[in-house]
Design a protein around this nucleic acid. Structure first.
Lengths: 196, 196
DNA sequence: GACAGCCTACCTTCAGATAGGTAGTCTCCA
DNA sequence: TGGAGACTACCTATCTGAAGGTAGGCTGTC
């Protein structure tokens, strides 16, 4: 059953990083949660940096498959963008922030390869959103005269920051607002499709 | 000269927190930078949490005075909003993220009083921006049919997230884009006043 | 019997923190 | 006006605990 314990460790580590940060969780925490000794973790992840890298790689893969699912399941650009934002909303309601945001905060203490995967994640996200917007404009579904990449970068910033603000000020969900303002800027005023 | 060393310690600590995070800097780092022993730091800040609290309190005060300066120095709402965004741009160009963003990431490892000051900071920021927008709408300087608080929350999210994304992807300054999209949503298309 | 997967035992380093001491400065009253 | 006592701002020495990590041994399965 190779990889099972490793995955359990990643499952345990991810929320810890997303809630406390990379430097504030320890092998001891993981060991307690998974039910093995700290030394045994080193069998699966020789160094903590290896774990961070695997964690981020898995996170990137899960984004890829989530985007593929969205593309299969949604017919309109609006639906797809709404579904994308919904991914962040799920993170928000769990009281966490994005793994990327967390790791970006601790950037200078992270090994370079991990930073690279963080960049890949953000690049993929922004690119995908920009592509969606461009398609929406092309088909006439959206009315946005500017550069789709701008709107995408702005949305990603808002989502990442919104997660942080929501956590810092419990009871003030920012993603709702970010989402509403985003759709408005795309010429889709009124209700937010992801909320329906 | 009471408070001098204490201020030096805060001066040394702030960039460390903004670049590495709260849990990734130590009294040893501070001691080396200021030129005293780690034990002496405890004279000024008995516990690390006390230092964090003082740091955040000072940060909040500097925001207050920055806002006061902006109100004195700018006559139009557009100028004031531009100057506000410029505060974040300075942080961006120094390669750091907002102290609030950093501390919000490490939220669960911080003592409660520190979290309170973070909330105060964000509340002040959002409230001030919302007030500016409301005034701009009232005087006709801005054309924004929605709730000023929404636009303010969205801007703050974008600025906080933009700082994180700019750091995670060096060479992709996100605040420019966030700023441009923000002003566009206020009915002020075209150039960004803060950039001129 | 080879190997995966876990264990115990141990190491080094560093974290924040405390105790107690000292040099210099300030204050105040005989 | 000068000295006693208090105070400030640092020091050295030391503690406890936890961090990540290593070495080598046990056990069950193919």
């Amino acid at each position: 059953m190779a990889g099972d314990t490793a995955n359990q460790l990643l499952d345990a580590a991810q929320p810890l990083v997303q809630r406390r940060g990379y430097n504030a969780f320890s092998y001891k925490d993981l060991a307690a949660e998974v039910g093995i000794r700290t030394a045994s973790i080193h069998y699966h992840f020789p160094a903590k940096a290896d774990l961070a890298k695997a964690l981020m790689a898995r996170y990137l893969e899960s984004l890829r498959s989530a985007l593929a699912d969205i593309e299969l399941g949604s017919s309109s650009v609006m639906d797809r963008l709404g579904a994308f934002i919904e991914l962040y909303r799920r993170t928000e309601s769990s009281g966490a922030i994005c793994l990327c945001g967390s790791l970006a905060s601790d950037r200078e203490t992270l090994p370079e390869p991990v930073q690279g995967v963080v960049e890949d994640y953000l690049e993929l996200s922004e690119g995908w959103v920009a592509d969606q917007i461009a398609e929406g404009v092309r088909t006439g579904e959206l009315d946005f005269p500017g550069d789709p990449a701008d709107a995408a970068a702005s949305l990603l910033s808002g989502l990442q920051g919104g997660l942080i603000l929501s956590r810092a000020r419990p009871g003030c969900p920012h993603l709702d607002t970010v989402s509403r303002m985003f759709f408005r800027s795309l010429g889709v005023s009124g209700s937010d499709p992801a909320r329906v």
